[in-house]
Design a protein around this nucleic acid. Structure first.
Length: 425
RNA sequence: GGAGAGUUGGCAGAGUGGCCGAAUGCGGCGGUCUUGAAAACCGUUAGGCCCCAAAAGGGCCUCGGGGGUUCGAUUCCCUCACUCUCCGCCA
């Protein structure tokens, strides 16, 4: 969440930010509710101050006088009891409204209306030219997977419904090879690797910025146990340091988590319905950093560079895109996507995303560090980035590494992990 | 799933209705002493919110979370969460 004080001190900054993002949130309503809240809070605090003073007097008094004073206090106690639920209600209201406000965009974010306005930062590698090179048209990954018995979505539909898949045979080997490659590289870059919980409590989910009215539709909730399934391990790594004050020397603090990710994909009916590009369940390795405010932009570039390194190791053609104002997610102040070439669609598709969430998540999580210069505890910045979203990586590997004879080469860097050089039947 | 015990500051650990944001010890920070260090001694050491343009200052809240009893709750009651021990079940 953003700092509610900003609503008082610099509401213009917020309204301009909302405008850039194309958001229609009613700022006035939040502002008025907050004013009401503070007024009521003052009232109650004054009454409590009275009460506290009077209680001191009661301690010292005796006999009849004590009785008298106690009787007098009953009225104030009643008054406070009457006001408290009102305050509670209005605080809840403000709490919900403030969660809707998106993070303040970084100054370098380009104004835009949709993903069409995203900036292409760079293009690395060349898309393979199938018809020219091998004299054959590129098959899409589902065709390849069917021919080679690598992915089964038909039977998954029977067992689980739409948007699920079984990985089979070499795709399973490839998954674990990708995991090993990622962890090998990330450990060298001082990430602490982890396998985090995939079920988290509501407080953690809300603090990470995923329980907005809009976001709620996207997450699975386990009603009986009041737990949420994570849509990315970012959601369980961020809260790892909830309510802690981190030693400044430890920053930047880097984690990389492997987890299954669960997404309802509520708003995406009809979009990417085939195959495993957009599924309810997939595995992913996610990077996550805690930094000081000064470090975070540099760390963002670092996370992007790690993503690129991983892609270059696999020798996949990709481009880097900086999302425009309208396409940047609620919690993020800046987001870069990596889009990898997908031959069957003859275009780049998103495989990675890295965001600087500045203090937006840290505020809700209450994660701080001691700033020695000011002597105060200040909020850290949090950043996240995809190392490998396995399902999508499998797709781009299968398609980009396909051969004219229908087999698929295993990227060289992965061969040592699985002991085979190609997939063929 | 059943039975029991617990949850207090950075840590350990007192406190069983008001003088308790909280004894004491350890740790941390600063100082004295010392060429330097250790020891000893002295001092200091939680967080959040509100008012105030800011500073100064003032106020409120927090003893696992929430609720209740009471003029007043760390202390009594209810409830939830978590931790530990034993039994059952289980990979």
């Amino acid at each position: 969440m953003i700092d509610i004080k900003l609503l008082r001190d610099n509401p213009k900054k917020i309204s301009e930010n909302l405008k850039k993002r194309g958001s229609k949130i009613d700022l006035k309503k939040i502002s008025l509710t907050d004013q009401k809240r503070r007024k009521l809070l003052q009232e109650i605090e004054n009454l409590r101050a009275n009460q506290n003073q009077a209680n001191q007097a009661i301690v010292k008094a005796n006999g009849q006088e004590k009785e008298k004073k106690i009787m007098a206090m009953k009225k104030i106690a009643e008054e406070i009891k009457g006001l408290s639920p009102k305050l509670q209600k209005i605080e809840d209201e403000v709490g919900i409204l403030i969660l809707e406000l998106p993070n303040i965009l970084r100054a370098d974010i380009k104004l835009g209306k949709s993903s069409d306005d995203n900036e292409i930062i760079k293009i690395v590698g060349k898309p393979p030219k199938f018809s020219a090179k091998g004299g054959f048209p590129a098959k899409d990954y589902l065709t390849l997977a069917k021919e080679l018995d690598l992915i089964d979505v038909e039977r998954a539909a029977k067992v689980s419904g739409s948007r699920f898949g079984y990985l089979k045979n070499e795709t399973v080997l490839l998954e674990f090879a990708l995991v090993q490659l990622a962890f090998d590289i990330l450990r060298k870059e001082s990430f602490t690797i982890m396998v985090p919980p995939v079920m988290i409590c509501g407080q953690a989910m809300a603090a990470m910025g995923f329980l907005t009215t809009h976001g709620q539709d996207e997450v699975y909730r386990l009603e009986k146990d009041n737990l949420y399934l994570v849509g990315t391990s970012e959601q369980s790594i961020g809260p790892y340091h909830m309510n802690e004050i981190l030693p400044k020397e430890s920053l930047p603090l880097r984690y990389a988590g492997f987890s299954t990710c669960f997404r309802r994909e509520a708003g995406s009916y009809g979009k990417d319905t085939k195959g495993i590009l957009r599924v309810h369940q997939f595995d992913k390795i996610e990077m996550f950093s805690f930094t000081t405010p000064e470090q975070s932009d540099k760390e963002h570039e670092f996370l992007l560079s790690v993503e690129e390194k991983l892609m270059q190791e696999l020798e996949l053609p990709y481009r880097v895109v900086k999302l425009c104002s309208a396409d940047t997610g609620t919690a993020a102040a800046r987001t870069y996507d990596i889009e990898t070439w997908l031959p069957s669609e003859n275009r780049y598709r998103e495989t990675h995303s890295t965001s600087n969430c500045t203090d937006y998540q840290a505020r809700g999580l209450n994660i701080r560090y001691k700033n020695k210069a000011t002597g105060k505890n200040e909020l850290v910045h949090t950043l996240n980035g995809t190392a490998f979203a396995i399902a999508r990586l499998l797709i781009v590997i299968l398609e980009n590494y396909q051969q004219c004879d229908g087999s698929i080469l295993v990227p060289e860097v992965l061969q040592k992990y699985i002991g085979i050089k190609e997939i063929r039947r």
